[in-house]
Amino acid sequence: MTFGNSSSRRLLASAAAVLFAVALPGFAQVDASKSTVIATLKQMNVPVDGAFKKFTAQVAFDPAKPTAGSTNLSVDMSSYDLGDAEYNKQVRDKEWFDSATLPKATFVSTAISPAGGNQYKVTGKLTIKGKSQVVTVPVAITQQGATQTFDGSLPIKRTLYDIGTGEWKDTSVVADDVVIKFHIVAAQH
């Protein structure tokens, strides 16, 4: 999908950066204040949650035609918050997210298939730190009036995306397994 000329794309990008959510024709308006993207890792076998404070999402989903749906999520990697300024600074460095060079992680869906009840399998390309993998995410979708809620979690291996290089490539201190959990609230317009 293209968004017109370069001026239109710049305007759209600016609006997304300010609002953290984008409403496009056919897409739901994402409520960033009610939505979350959290990555949970284990450091020395202790779970540690970090929240991405800035992200944009475009979601188009009709439960009557789920296979026609689509989603596009873009996460600002420098917005990862572990609750400590020093840790936050460290994860932005080249060994971890390298957010100065590769500021965004993205998920772009390629297929949505029903999995029974309000469960769906969303397949797409996940790109983090310039490395891409095709993944399938189980998602529970609920609807109340015009509001849709998308909940899911995706386990990944951080080393597949070069997250934690150099001395941090060793997974004995920070485990290779990371779980990305999301709760996206959107309203049809």
Results as ranks from 00 to 15, higher is better:
56 T>D: 08
13 A>Y: 00
62 D>M: 05
118 N>P: 03
141 I>F: 02
76 D>A: 13
40 T>C: 03
80 Y>N: 05
181 K>C: 00
189 H>T: 14
91 V>D: 02
185 V>Y: 01
4 G>T: 07
12 L>N: 11
5 N>M: 04
171 T>I: 13
94 K>G: 07
149 T>L: 00
125 K>T: 15
140 A>T: 15
44 M>C: 06
176 D>E: 14
99 S>G: 09
126 L>V: 13
182 F>A: 00
131 K>P: 08
167 E>C: 03
15 A>V: 12
107 F>W: 08
166 G>C: 09
10 R>G: 05
79 S>H: 05
12 L>K: 05
85 A>F: 01
50 G>C: 04
135 V>I: 15
42 K>C: 12
133 Q>E: 15
76 D>H: 01
134 V>F: 04
183 H>I: 00
26 G>Q: 07
169 K>C: 03
166 G>D: 10
67 T>K: 15
110 T>Y: 06
41 L>E: 03
167 E>L: 12
39 A>S: 06
121 K>L: 15
36 T>N: 06
20 F>L: 10
124 G>Q: 10
88 N>A: 01
71 T>K: 02
158 R>S: 13
15 A>R: 12
167 E>V: 15
109 S>K: 07
136 T>R: 05
122 V>F: 07
77 M>E: 01
22 V>Y: 04
132 S>N: 11
50 G>I: 03
160 L>Y: 10
118 N>C: 08
86 E>I: 09
39 A>G: 04
100 A>V: 10
15 A>G: 15
143 Q>K: 15
63 P>V: 12
45 N>P: 02
113 S>F: 00
55 F>Q: 06
36 T>G: 11
15 A>N: 14
